[in-house]
Amino acid sequence: MRRLFRPAVLLTLTLMLAGPAAQIGAEAPANLPGTLDAARVTAGTYSSDPGHSYVAWRVNHLGFNESQGLIGDVTGTLTLDPANLAAAKVSAVIPVAKLVTPNPALTASLLAPGADGGKPHFFGAAPADATFVSTSVVPGADGLSAEVNGNLTLNGVTRPVTLKAHLSGAGINPFNAGARTVGFMAETTIKRSDYGIMFLLPIVGDEVHLTISAAFEKK
């Protein structure tokens, strides 16, 4: 599992350095199954495509550069109506135990158990899934973006967060029985200290920048 996700970690690094506009794919080839066209979004309930939904994180490392990681296999549900975007709802389950980084030793340290049965430095050997449940959606004036407010539960702690989300594509997926599909990119920043992860503060940053890419298929 870890080896499968390492190329995606490097791709995520490239996308995050390029910026949100590049993530949305402003120069994508024509005639793709999914395009940045809100008119192609249909009302209904969607389920995430775990193979193409992930959360990437980055945090300052000693003031020199950033450490990066990725959690894939994100599952969730999205309910939306293009005529009433403010009523949209989204929930997600993020399997922290599947966290990977470009370095096996770093990955192992993030998932290491506490010494002699004590509290782990980071997530521990069998961390609970993180969850996100939206509480409100504020559509953007452009019809392609929204602020998604909700509660993030991580490491046994629940805190409110706001995701800045953008539609990245909509259409029919020819590789999954013609399922109507919508894709989104979103960003937010959290403080790991808010979730009880205090190890190596402040030399390893408190602020953790999250980039979410999710594909949802209509059922």
Rank of each mutant, 00 (worst) to 15 (best):
P20L: 13
I190P: 09
F132L: 05
I212E: 03
R3C: 02
A56E: 00
F5C: 01
S91T: 15
T77Y: 08
R58M: 12
G72N: 14
A130V: 04
G114A: 10
P160T: 07
R2F: 00
A170Q: 01
Q68S: 09
A86T: 07
V138K: 11
P120D: 12
K219P: 07
A105R: 15
V157R: 08
A21C: 00
H121C: 09
A38R: 14
P29L: 06
A86P: 03
V41H: 01
L62I: 14
Y46G: 07
L11M: 13
N103Q: 15
W57L: 07
P113Q: 02
I212A: 10
A146R: 04
L17N: 06
A186Q: 10
F199D: 06
P160R: 09
S136C: 12
L154S: 06
V208S: 03
P104K: 00
I190H: 01
T188V: 06
E147F: 05
L106Q: 04
A146S: 01
S53H: 06
S168T: 15
S91N: 14
V90K: 03
K219I: 13
K98A: 05
G63I: 15
A165M: 09
D142R: 05
D129W: 03
T153Q: 07
L17T: 10
R192M: 06
I197Q: 04
K119H: 01
N60M: 01
V9E: 07
G34P: 07
S47G: 13
P29A: 12
G156D: 09
G178F: 02
L106N: 08
V41F: 01
D49T: 08
P160Q: 09
A125K: 11
D194I: 10
E187K: 11
L10N: 15
L17R: 10
T45S: 11
N155Q: 13
G143E: 06
A165K: 04
P95K: 10
E217C: 13
H166V: 09
L10E: 10
F132K: 05
S136H: 05
L78P: 04
A126V: 14
V133C: 02
D129G: 05
L152K: 05
W57N: 02
T107E: 10
G150W: 00
T189H: 13
S53Y: 00
N65C: 06
A97E: 14
V157I: 15
K98Q: 13
N149E: 04
R192A: 06
L80Y: 05
R3Q: 15
M185W: 08
A141E: 15
L10T: 14
M1E: 08
V9S: 01
G117A: 04
H209Y: 10
E187Y: 11
N31E: 04
A39D: 12
F175W: 11
L32R: 09
T75L: 07
S168D: 03
K219F: 11
Y46L: 02
T14K: 10
P7Q: 08
N173W: 05
R2A: 13
